[in-house]
């Protein structure tokens, strides 16, 4: 098991947002946590990355307890996050943003080949590599955030609400990239999404999170046909 969260309780600004969530991700899987706005999805992902402290429970990564580890140590173990709202560094250029993903890794990385791989995935970043990130559109910033997280070749990618605020055609493109990374590049992905339809379509398994509690879990295909899920999240 690559990642295992056990009975996580997490408070966000003194209010408990997640009340004992347990889930796991196997090596090579694409798992999503779907749920409405405010269900606690972002809080969970930030806690997995070490950006929000956990009140109770444990996070294990490759069998190691990483619950109290600072985020830079988790990053060093191969976990990367595409945060909610992209959060690119606005005053750095596109290339500098990507290079922050290779901090302390330049010596052990074939940087040119990694960059050309990134630019093949997101050609627009190549065109804009010398531009400040703040001049990019929302969709381009989202692609930059993915590139920044991917450039170090992580073992586990956490993806937070990547579809939010994107045009439908871009949502499709971004999800296609995630599916490709998972199927062809063997990247393990934990996805957190409001857009249940798009994320269930590419996931192996999924969890349904409602106001801080996991209410349902199973194969993505099964969940897609679950009447409760259909009614609540798929608009059917």
């Amino acid at each position: 098991m690559l990642l295992e969260a056990e009975n996580l309780r997490i408070a966000y600004r003194d209010i408990e947002a997640v009340h004992g969530a347990s889930f796991h991700v196997e090596e090579g899987e694409l798992v999503s946590i779907i749920g409405a706005n405010g269900a606690g999805k972002t809080t969970i992902l930030n806690a997995l990355m070490g950006m929000t402290p956990v009140k109770e429970g444990a996070v294990r990564y490759r069998g190691l307890d990483i619950t109290g580890l600072p985020s830079h140590k988790r990053a060093g173990m191969g976990i990367r996050i595409v945060p909610e709202g992209a959060r690119v560094f606005p005053q750095l250029t596109v290339l500098e943003n990507i290079m922050t993903g290779l901090y302390r890794l330049r010596k052990v990385t074939d940087v040119p080949s990694r960059l050309s791989w990134i630019y093949e995935l997101f050609p627009v970043l190549d065109e804009r590599s010398r531009q400040l990130a703040q001049t990019l559109s929302g969709g381009e910033q989202q692609q930059l955030a993915i590139a920044r997280a991917l450039v170090s070749k992580p073992r586990l990618l956490l993806v937070d609400e990547v579809s939010m605020g994107l045009m439908p055609i871009l949502v499709e493109k971004v999800f296609e990239v995630l599916r490709y990374l998972n199927r062809e590049e063997d990247l393990t992905i934990l996805l957190v999404e409001q857009n249940a339809l798009a994320s269930l379509a590419i996931s192996n398994r999924a969890y349904v999170l409602e106001t801080g509690v996991i209410t349902l879990e199973g194969e993505a295909q099964t969940l897609k046909s679950d009447p409760g899920v259909r009614k609540a999240y798929l608009g059917a």
Binding site: P70, A75, P90, E96, R104, S152
Partner: peptide, 25 residues
């Protein structure tokens, strides 16, 4: 320098800088 890049990144979003492996403290 790489240190300078990490310093500039940290001053723009210290949490995200940490999530990229930068020891922000």
């Amino acid at each position: 320098t790489e240190l300078g890049l990490a310093m500039r990144a940290s001053s723009q979003d210290i949490q995200i800088a940490g999530s990229l492996g930068i020891n922000t403290s």
